[in-house]
Amino acid sequence: MPKRYEPYRSRPWESMNQPDTIPDTIPFAAPPLALEAEVARLIVTVLHLENKPEEIDPEAPLFGEGLGLDSIDALELALAISREYGIELKSDDERNRRIFASLRALAAHIGAARVR
């Protein structure tokens, strides 16, 4: 029996409004606040946002409602994360939805996966 063909999502960050079918059994540990502030600064700098880093609600969604980022931002952010922390984001990573869910989730992922 061949392995089930898994259709991919072409916009991996965009599923936050849909039921999350991935069991959330391993919650991200809360990241150190210093890293959270650093990632907030990275987001503001890389995307040329008008917001001040400390104004970003750490629990609010980064995409759609909340900070209101879009698809082009996702690509820019992925590049910056790769450059700064050596983390390569991939679309088939099932955790993407949670990684991009909020500033806190993103910082937690970076804290856990960074290689520099």
């Binding site: 991996p12 996702a74 390569e88 088939d92």
Partner: peptide, 11 residues
Amino acid sequence: GPTFFPHDIAA
């Protein structure tokens, strides 16, 4: 297959 991130395209 996915082709969004640079890593996807390279793979």
